[in-house]
Simulated scan of single mutants.
Amino acid sequence: MAAGFNAYLIAPASIIPLLVDSFGIDKASAGLSISVFFLAWGMAGLPGGLLMDRYDNRRLAFVGVVALVLASLAGAATSTYLPFLLTRFVGGATGAFLWTANANVVSRVFPESKLAVATGLFVAAGPAGQAIAQFGGPLLADVAGWRAVFVVYPLIVVAGLPVLYLAAREPVRSEEAISLGQFVRVLRNPTILAVSFASACSFALFVFFSSWMPTYATEELSIDLAAAGAATALVPFAGIVARPGGGWLSDRIGERRRPVIVVSFLLALPVIFGVTTIRSAGGFAMLMLAAGATVQLAIGVYYVYVAELAEPGTTGTCLAMVTSVST
């Protein structure tokens, strides 16, 4: 489910020229189709977290699936760009239920001894979905047209819904509805805010390396675009291993979360410095692999850490805080 959601999120990136031609817009305007998605996801995060602590998360996920499918169908059918952007905004808002609520389900279903690894595997669906979109989008568009891209990925989300119900056979919600006072305390909790800020920094580094490096490689290193794109694809691919790997490491050192977060940033520092010194295509590829591994090492750990810090009945809101700040 999460992989399909992330594939739909990043879907426009690999077919930007087709959107430009179809809607008669420029590339900057086409890029808004991704920006509004993140905007809606961030805006819906905290209200969604409040709902997650009050209602069965499985039902909220079902609502999210229905909304995403309807938005994707409407987006594929529209002939003008503004309505298309609106459908992307609606799709982004479903992230509160299709990503964060699923993270909450994982935190409730798995035992504490396996929680970090399980959460790491869950968040690895993010780069996996992005990889599906980056490689599959152009191929699908060639076969069935660009509109099919925005219809197919939500089908992956639909396929994940039965799996969710099989994994969580009982309702997933807080025993008691979160109070307004508890909600305010979450927003003011300095530790949760610090973890959310650290998560935002990690995610910003991930976006920086996965989005801007192809342009940097072509303009500054004189690497051709195809090679630069292939090398940069190593960033999300590394996350498929690094995200659950960080959770595994955290469990191996006595379920301690902070050391993994600190190590992630410390290892990322020489990689960031390396961007200014690498001059070869091979070195650039190795740098992208290292970047993907280091900056994503703690991404799954943030979710586990916040869930452990949460007051009883506020886990969904705390997870939503991390997601909202990060996006």
Score class of each variant (00 low, 15 high):
L155R: 01
F209M: 05
G274S: 09
T314Q: 06
T191C: 02
S280M: 11
D142Y: 02
S35C: 02
L46N: 02
L319G: 08
W99D: 14
V295M: 12
D251E: 15
V63A: 13
R54W: 09
L161S: 00
Q134R: 15
E308P: 04
S107F: 03
L289K: 05
I278Y: 08
T276N: 08
L289R: 01
F110I: 07
F203L: 15
P154H: 01
R108S: 14
T317W: 06
R169C: 06
L85M: 09
S174I: 02
L51R: 00
A204W: 07
V304K: 07
A320Q: 07
F237P: 03
L166H: 09
A281H: 05
N102P: 01
N104L: 13
I240V: 14
F97P: 10
A144Q: 04
Y55V: 07
V143E: 02
F197L: 15
E170Q: 14
P270Y: 06
D224C: 09
L309C: 01
W99C: 11
F284R: 01
V262M: 01
A30P: 00
K27T: 15
R58N: 10
G300K: 03
A200K: 03
T276C: 05
R256E: 15
A93P: 09
V235P: 04
V186P: 11
F84W: 05
L39P: 07
R258Y: 03
F208C: 02
A141Q: 06
A217F: 05
R188E: 10
V207Y: 09
A93I: 09
A144R: 03
F150T: 10
A141K: 04
L9I: 11
V306K: 00
T191Y: 09
S202H: 07
A125D: 09
V304L: 07
